[in-house]
Structure formats: structure tokens, C-alpha cells
Amino acid sequence: MLIEVSGLKKSYTTGTVKTEVLKGVDLKLGKGEIGVILGPSGSGKSTLMNIIGGVDRADSGRVTVDGTEVTRLSDEELTEYRRAEIGFVFQFYNLIPNLTVGENIEVVANISKSPLNIGAVLQAVEMQEKKDRFPRELSGGEQQRIAIARAIVKNPKLLLGDEPTGALDYQTSRSILRLLQQVNKEFGTTILLITHNTAIAAMANRVFKLRSGKIVEEWVNQEVVPAERIEW
């Protein structure tokens, strides 16, 4: 297993009110698998993913990624962990507006020990012609492709995507999902996605349903559907 989460708890205190966001989450995802987290808004999906990605801390419980016990790392070690292992794709792409496409990818390649060739990565996301454009000059789908390119350039063990298609239309969403599937196949990258969209679950190896901070349902897809065949 690449990811092993057990008994994960997290709460926020705002003023005097304490909200339990994660109430003991258990989750496992194997190497090279695609996992999807489903759940209604406010159920704690992002919180869970942030803890796995090492950008947030849990109150208790443990998260292990490829043998590293993430929940026990110091701030500096978390930085190293993110730097070496994790790729992020966001709902709103989060490209740096004053850097060109190529430079946006370099942002990550720059701190990676053995980055992939930027040209090759751009080719993988079919964006090699747009290398010198600025993000503003690209469509949302194109921006997300660049964001994926940026995430995979360091060849991460784990790619995390918080609603990567949340801001895109149907067709574009499907092409992005297909791209993710391709990355998974080609580079063997383990991928964990958050989505509202149950249909997307079909392309995952494992699906986790989160409700009010608990996994209420979890299943393994025996037959993974190619993204281009998913419809909703």
C-alpha cells in the first residue's frame, strides 16, 4: 500500500465552537492505483487530502505514505516530503500569472532531484506549442493541463487533485481525466482525486465515500472504465 491512513482525526476551533471535521478516517490506496474521494460539501474531503499531502496537520491518527509516517514529520520534514513525493493539482489551476507556461513547470522542476524533461512533459499533456504563452492566454482546460504537467514533472509518487475538473465543462473535464489516467499508466503515478461527481468514480481503482468526517462507504472497482467512456 502506498497510502495508509488510520484513525485520522482533525477538528477546528473557531472561537468557542469546536468542529470535528475528521472523526477517525481509515483509508488505504495501493501503489499505482487511482483513488477517488466522494462526498458532500463540508464533509472533510479537502482536509483529509491536505493532511495526506503534508500541507495540514492531524490531531491524532496516522498517515503513512510509502513507508514515511507523514503525521510524525516536523515542518521541515514535511517540506522535504512534499518536495520529493507529492504533486498537486488544484481546482483553479493556480498557475503563476507572470511566468510563462514553461516557467510555471520549471517552478517545480527547479526543486526536484531528477525532474522529467519539460518538453516531454509538455508533450504528454499535448501543450508543447504553448510553452512561451502566459497562463492568461490559455483556456481553463489548457491551464489545467499545464497544472498537471507541473505536478508530474518531478515524477511524484503521489498526485493529489482536489476537484481538478471542478471548474471545467464536460468535454474538457473528460479530456483532463483521460490525461490523468494516462499519467497513471505511463509514469505509474498513484493518484488520489476529490470530486463531487460520482460518475468519475468509475475510472478509479478504489472509491471512498466521506460523510461528516467518516468514510461511510468504500469499494474497489474490478473493472476500471477508461475516462473517455465515462458519461454524466
Binding site: 517540506t79 512534499r82 518536495r83 493556480n94 503563476i96 526543486i111
Partner: peptide, 12 residues
């Protein structure tokens, strides 16, 4: 936003 992003990406 860039600084924040750098932090997420694991910049020291």
C-alpha cells in the same frame, strides 16, 4: 499566492 504555492510545492 505565489509564495503560498511555493510552500505547497515544498520550497524551503
Amino acid at each position: 499566492n505565489t509564495i503560498s504555492l511555493f510552500k505547497v510545492f515544498g520550497y524551503k
